[in-house]
């Protein structure tokens, strides 16, 4: 059964349609959420909440659209909301920026050395953990969901150039705003 028909069934009130969609996408959705929450059980909560939200709004879902990107983008939004509600997520004394993670990803994707790859992967995981959830969102949208900067700009309701700024400078700006590193911009 394709996603379109599963959504159609769901729109008719048939919960079997939702079960199919959950079975099909829950693993990837949890992985997407985990990249932002860095907490497995929180990631599962996020995915649960996202599916429930989709269920309640399914009558407005355009079933000509592919379901997977719609779901995963919704997961990203929910994960971010949850993280911003819970706070206490980042320490400002780390020198990690989204672009550093992007650089690590580029290096890891270029290497053919297994040992170096494993090390880089560890570094990426660790570095992700030091980003704010919003910065993780940007990384996940750009590199995991493979959204274009234009799509990201639309999702984030910002000008396309702002996405680059978000990828590179958000943290520096935050530090400056908090008076922690004056002229560093």
């Amino acid at each position: 059964m394709d996603d379109c028909l599963a959504v159609h069934r769901l729109k008719k009130g048939d919960m079997g349609g939702l079960e199919i969609l959950i079975a099909r996408y829950q693993a990837k959705a949890v992985r997407t959420a985990f990249l932002i929450t860095h907490d497995q059980s929180l990631a599962e909560d996020v995915v649960q909440e996202t599916f429930i939200r989709i269920y309640h709004r399914i009558c407005f879902y355009d079933d000509m659209r592919p379901f997977e990107p719609y779901l995963l983008r919704s997961v990203v939004h929910t994960a971010l909301n949850v993280m911003e509600k819970t706070a206490h997520w980042t320490s400002l004394d780390e020198e990690i920026e989204p672009d550093a993670v992007a650089n690590l990803l580029q290096r890891a994707s270029a290497t053919e050395d297994m040992v170096e790859f494993a090390q880089l992967k560890e570094e990426i995981y660790s570095a992700l953990g030091k980003l704010s959830p919003r910065q993780r969102q940007v990384i996940v949208q750009r590199y995991y969901l493979e959204m274009s900067e234009k799509e990201m700009a639309e999702e984030l309701s910002v000008a396309p150039g702002t996405v680059k700024w978000l990828l590179n400078g958000a943290r520096q700006r935050l530090r400056m705003l908090m008076g922690m590193e004056g002229n560093k911009q």
Binding site: I22, V30, F34, L35, E44, V47, Q48, Q106, Y125, Y144
Partner: peptide, 27 residues
Amino acid sequence: PMTPHQILDEIAQEHTPQHIHLSNGIL
């Protein structure tokens, strides 16, 4: 070599269970 997507997916897979059963809870 792997793409950034594949790398992130592998990282996420390593930290999340392979068998996820959310259906019952959601429904």
